[in-house]
Design a protein around this nucleic acid. Sequence first.
DNA 1: CCCGGCACCGAAGGAAATTCGGCGAGGGAC
DNA 2: GTCCCTCGCCGAATTTCCTTCGGTGCCGGG
Lengths: 168, 168
Amino acid sequence: MRAQTRRLSFGQTELDGTDIRILQVLQDEGRISKSDLAARVHLSNSACFERMRRLEQSGIIRSYHARLDLDLMEDLQIFQTHVVLGSHRQEDFTRFEAYVAANDMIAECYGLGGGIDYSLTCVARRISDYQGLIDDLLSRGLNVERYYTYVVTKQVKRREIGIDRLLG
Amino acid sequence: MRAQTRRLSFGQTELDGTDIRILQVLQDEGRISKSDLAARVHLSNSACFERMRRLEQSGIIRSYHARLDLDLMEDLQIFQTHVVLGSHRQEDFTRFEAYVAANDMIAECYGLGGGIDYSLTCVARRISDYQGLIDDLLSRGLNVERYYTYVVTKQVKRREIGIDRLLG
DNA sequence: CCCGGCACCGAAGGAAATTCGGCGAGGGAC
DNA sequence: GTCCCTCGCCGAATTTCCTTCGGTGCCGGG
């Protein structure tokens, strides 16, 4: 009774409907017990465990995380910063991304196409801390031509980006 | 041996250094076993378990999630959409946010201050699916005055937004 | 038709989670 | 100062869950 309808290939790995269901459940309930997961996808514990291990080892499941309630965190400011670089050589991108990777005030970074090069989500305790980040960013010779700062006034929604849309 | 140095209050709840350490670990390793977590924060299983339950029930820990490797997902386009509303009555915001909450192509949404009202992260299988989202958005009478679309070409970084910055 | 591989199942041993009784430090009342 | 109460912690016992393993059936190729 393997194989439902839909199949997808993720890099080297082939996924059937049951794998996708497992990923969906784990995306939403990252700490569900393996027995409950097995029941949820109508598999025995051992079969489900084997699939889960395969998904983790293949790298499709990268990591698990607890999500905290930001509204309860006072003393926490979030900013979005949109960055335009002055030139678009490979080296410019590499250096900027290395900076992003190393700076732990920057929680998220998307590379964009179309007028803005990067969108950053920055976390700071005070506006002055954020300004310190920007000062640092600009002083590193990273060729930032322009940047735009937006205060995040509300975190309206946050979900994992993933598998759901592949099923419709 | 309660209480380290730093203390924070999260809404109703007081957190000491050990709580914060627990949150840090769970943010990074959401599926760590409770025994391992207890060892990591130098507590007995039962004491650590009690704290963890308190953190979950108080809502500070909202949820747990598996993070998937997007680079392995072919057939998945991500877009950032910046939205400006035509007027800023309370009702306009409420209706827009209700739309965002209900639409499952929209994975993330930040409310912003400063020229742009909302920043959305949208997930689609094809550009035409994304265009369908935009068409729908515009046809709902949500008073969207202007929007800007950026293709996400690379997910440079993605971390949980949280506790780390409260410790520096 | 027969064989091999693969995914599955169920049971058993081992590991983890959860509960519970008791202990000791700290703080308030007297 | 001292008594007592509270709170957080510990360690052991029970229960629940994880993980492995041997075995079974299905399917495709030879």
